[in-house]
Design a binder for these strands. Structure first.
Lengths: 264, 264
DNA sequence: TTGCTCCTCACGTCACGTGAGGTGGC
DNA sequence: TTGCTCCTCACGTCACGTGAGGTGGC
């Protein structure tokens, strides 16, 4: 009972444009039931309509084509479900970020100016378990979580909040070196323990989600630049309260530090 | 007190990448405070940091650059607010569509199969107020609302639900001819009244949001194709319950019609 | 002076849409 | 046979990112 349909007919029934159907053929997401080897004409079967509708919905959800292909190729319903669940979770995260951005934008436009409480500190040499990597800016969150999971898995006596430092290139060029560390008891026997050198920093405490961290960096960087006290080197972050404590973003407390030289 | 910053320094403070800053200069969204005419070096002022942060937030909300430029150029806070409100509304609409797509996808994957109740009808010639235009598929919704607003503003006696017909090219090529109409009393004196010719259609009733209209078209088109009774001509839609009645999408009722030839 | 920073092209990305120019099918 | 449908390039979109190759500034 399967009717062979030309691309135009299948387009009308599936509501995917002819261009889109050709594109899906090229990418192997939706192959025509038959292709005339002489004319190149594509022929579709009515049985392919539900597949087309499914693809359309995944694309409405902005799932990348390659992934749609993978989901459709998934043999069992369970792994399909896993794909979809993962995608929905990403979408929820994005929604949360959007809501944060809206709130933050309102604050900015209302000129909700924080008077930054900037403190100069000298951090003494510290014994710490550290992980360093060269990463991409968009891969940073996954890497960050993984690295701290690894550090907390070590059985050393923790001697301070989780922290990290990040090369400027990471923000200027979208990729650069990052280090996260956990201060530990100097007497630890973990062979991975290193001693971090001392640093002089201008620091600022930031309350709230990390979407707004740029505001803190703006205030701190402006302060340092206008006084001409900046020094080369990575910026520092101390995660006083964070996801690592299972806290909500609104409750996070982060201390950021900008390297300085000279006497303030 | 305004420090002159190189692009790299400004990038560190604003957390926008150097490439992005150059891009924003090129597009005129964020012009450097000064550009060295000899070397081409860009110099920024610390006063530009809040602007950079604002741009970043608008971009996080996926506002197109051109529009960000327009918002920033808006002279008074009121028109700024209007821009933002309009953008937020679009985002909410998209969120609603996303939620519909998720629900619809789950239904599809669970194989929630509707047994389509297809009816063959012959619509007699009708007197109607009609508006025809050649439109883009993504401009269709705005046009549709505007056209019906215009039709309802006429003071003729309405004799049936609002309806429309749509050339296949609109779906195959993303652009084509569309007509919406309001059946009216044949004795109307409105000079714009026309008589629509009779049509033979296979029809199917669809309940719910228009995101799912493609499912109905899939069922109807498959039915027509498998029986080989299709005829050329546009598809028809009757909006029995719709936005025009201030109903929620879940309560909408739409009848779709596919042109047929021959005796079923 | 050296090495770092900055510069301008030119091209890639992603999922198609937009023509141009040409051929096949009924 | 005519006109409609289908075909394959090649290029455009949007907001940047990715090099390449070269110059300026301290």
């Amino acid at each position: 009972m399967a009717a062979e349909l030309t691309i135009g007919e299948f387009s009308r029934i599936s509501r995917l444009s002819v261009k889109t159907l050709r594109h899906y053929h090229e990418w192997g997401v939706l192959e025509p039931a038959a292709v005339d080897p002489h004319s190149g004409y594509r022929y579709y079967a009515t049985e392919q309509v539900p597949t087309a509708q499914t693809i359309r919905r995944f694309r409405d959800l902005e799932m990348p084509i390659e992934q749609v292909k993978a989901v459709l190729a998934a043999p069992d319903p369970a792994s399909r479900e896993a794909f979809i669940a993962a995608h929905l979770e990403r979408m929820e995260q994005q929604l949360a970020r959007t809501q944060e951005a809206v709130a933050s934008l309102r604050g900015l436009l209302e000129g909700r100016g924080l008077t930054p409480q900037i403190t100069y500190v000298e951090i003494p040499p510290q014994t710490a378990l550290a992980i360093t990597a060269t990463i991409d800016r968009d891969g940073i969150e996954d890497w960050w979580r993984g690295a701290f999971a690894e550090l907390y898995a070590a059985k050393a006596t923790v001697a301070g909040p989780p922290s990290g430092f990040y090369a400027h290139e990471l923000f200027e060029d979208e990729a650069g070196e990052a280090t996260v560390y956990l201060p530990v008891d100097p007497l630890t026997e973990d062979p991975r323990a290193t001693i971090l050198p001392s640093r002089r920093l201008a620091t600022l405490r930031h309350d709230g989600p990390h979407t707004d961290l740029d505001l803190a960096y703006g205030a701190l960087g402006t302060h340092v630049a206008e006084r001409g006290v900046g020094a080369p080197g990575p910026v520092h972050e101390r995660y006083v309260v964070s996801v690592l404590d299972d806290a909500a973003p609104a409750d996070w407390v982060t201390e950021i530090g900008w390297p300085i030289a000279g006497d303030p």
